[in-house]
Amino acid sequence: MSKSRTIAQRRAIWAWLFLAVPIIYFILVRFYPTLDAFSISFTEWNIVGEKTFVGFDNYVRLWDDPVFWIVLSNTFEYLALGVPISMLLSFIIAYYLDQVRFGHGFLRACYFIPFLTTAVAMAWVWRWFYQPVPIGIINMALGQLGIVQQGFLRSTTQALPAVLAPAIWAGLGFQIIIFIAGIRAIPTSYYEAAKIDGAGAWQVLREITLPQLRPTIIFLTVISSIGFLRIFDQVYNMTQEGEGGPLNATRPLVLNIYKAAFEDFEMGMATAQTVVLFTILLIITIIQLRVLRK
């Protein structure tokens, strides 16, 4: 008995030994910075001088700042457009791709490859595509079809979807792969039972495939929501001087944070916005986890 205790103790020592460095790391590089961000958000600080405690002033200033509200609404627009479009597209593609035998691997690779690209690199490729004639290939193609050229990045209404498109494009492959895996994990006995009942394809989709895919759908929704809410690389590289223009039409929260922190040196305002971002992500995750539990 006493011997087993010493073994347990010895193993506990090993455990702490293994965990020592990671624990210090997580405290220093995750928890302390999180608290630090909260505490800076209550100060006015230009990163050089002294911090001045200002209470909730930064949050009040954000509340009163019309640009912040535009930025927030843009951020939600990325989410509101990005999640449904990418989920719908990826599900449809996955659903049919799963049934295809001929050239399956090739097709799957084509859909998946964009996921492996670098967002910055592809942002510049798309930026070029969107140019007006005589250099932008989309507008040149439209012109050959006799369609009026579009503003894309130079339009207050089209710019945000135009910036969003490469983000959706890059994420699609991942979602498709996960969807296919989800579809294949559904036990074939379910389908056989449905076949015996004489259910049609549509009915099978509605009553078996979709309900069975629920965890997959929720997982992908959470992941893509978080991704679209944090959009930055595309906007920074596709808009003039990385400003999120025209007229702030594409400026998302993270870009606003970056500009506040590293161009205006308003660390208090910047961290206050990170706290807002944190809160939004937290709420969305909690809502989605609750849906999952149901």
């Binding site: 220093l28 302390y32 910075p33 999180t34 800076i40 922190a261």
Partner: peptide, 17 residues
């Protein structure tokens, strides 16, 4: 729980660190 903390929140403190 660190999965809940967005990188964007950490970059400013990291920078100062």
């Amino acid at each position: 729980s660190t999965l809940m903390i967005p990188t964007e929140m950490l970059v400013i403190p990291w920078y100062i660190l």
